[in-house]
Write a protein that binds this DNA or RNA. Sequence first.
DNA 1: TAGTGGTCTAGACCACTCT
DNA 2: GAGTGGTCTAGACCACTAG
Lengths: 247, 247
Amino acid sequence: MGTTQLETVPEPKYWHLKTVLAKALDSEFAVGEVLPNERELAARFGVARATLRQALEQLELEGRLQRRRGVGTTVAPPRVGVDVGPAHHSWPGAQGDAWQTEGCETTVPPAAVARALGTADDHAVHVVHRVRTVHGQAVATELLYVPAASVPGLSGIETDAGTARGRAVLRELNRLELGGQERAVELGSARAEDARRLDRLPGSPVLVVTTRYLAAGGTAAVAVATYRADTCRLTFGDSGAVSLLAS
Amino acid sequence: MGTTQLETVPEPKYWHLKTVLAKALDSEFAVGEVLPNERELAARFGVARATLRQALEQLELEGRLQRRRGVGTTVAPPRVGVDVGPAHHSWPGAQGDAWQTEGCETTVPPAAVARALGTADDHAVHVVHRVRTVHGQAVATELLYVPAASVPGLSGIETDAGTARGRAVLRELNRLELGGQERAVELGSARAEDARRLDRLPGSPVLVVTTRYLAAGGTAAVAVATYRADTCRLTFGDSGAVSLLAS
DNA sequence: TAGTGGTCTAGACCACTCT
DNA sequence: GAGTGGTCTAGACCACTAG
């Protein structure tokens, strides 16, 4: 009376589907190639479209696939390694900085940022918006929070224009002596505005890198950077060695 | 003929639902409190259960909620900050190491690891299994790949037992002179075995930390650590300062 | 055994991208 | 306009936990 299955393992369909697709991607598809559309794939594997989508979502999360509405599903290239220091030990805006300034405003930061800055909860600070691109593609957005006290030399003339003032803030920031950095990485989901800049849908998984820039006496600035989790692999090269883990 | 909505923004229901729930979590719920079950919440908000689940999934991804089958959905505590160096600049198994050795085997590593180690694709290496716990809870699993060449002093007597051999490998590794570390962080989904150890479902989002340990001449070992993305916030404290970002 | 979240279905319509 | 992925529905059953 032996049945075909020993230890009947009720492995979810989408899980099995995912492994099958992953193998197919390795052996039968090239980077950039487009897969059959979801309705056809679902029919081919004999599952509902929702189940197939669950498998595709996981593969996209792992950076194996790229899906774009109105276009299709393509095989993603290997993740790009982006260096997030602390090799340079320098301020934002220093030479070799990979970020491009896009604007600057003055607002009250979120409570968590205010706490890290050591400012009052209702104290407005400069917020510099920046974007990081790799191979011409935006991979991260950043909000750099700088209290006015950190940039005392900022002239009043530059306090209106967006991008110009952003650059002025960075310039003044670089006059300070850097006392170290603290970083944290966690998983998040893209806010609507970040998603737009990163060419993703709102809620897409992102890696949030929070950096605290220290100067004599305390925190001079806090940066909250949002990296595309599907395409990015954050590298931390120590000991000055060239990173071989960066693809 | 004015309609109620200007600029009819077709914001997805689950997105709106998510923000509503997030606000409610801030104002009306305490950490550890259990939410109403999914069927009731869906009815209360007038949406299908699948739509509600989409909102809950995002909140869980952001570490705001914790869902457990057969139990319910509870409000998650703030993410715990776990230090992933490079403050110590030490080998695995050194004093103060946060990991616990669970076993050791000898197998051929994945191609990507073999490449980083500089070994042949079919060359077997020691693989030490370790677990990292915080507050009594497992937050990460690790596979530490150590080529036999890195631990020449390993005696033959210790080559059979699991945990004992693991400790022996770590002991031998600490005889080497550390030449630096390289780290990379990326998003992944938990393999079945990791998920079990971390008390999560297979496919749960995890932060994968790959570390390359350098010694004179090249790569002495490679560690692939898998952290729970829902509960962990990886911290990188530089300059020896106490991390204030760690919650 | 009752109640929970997890999986799955078979549809429908919408938003977007290209031609 | 045709074709794609994204959203949503209203059900059903399963796996797990706990009293």
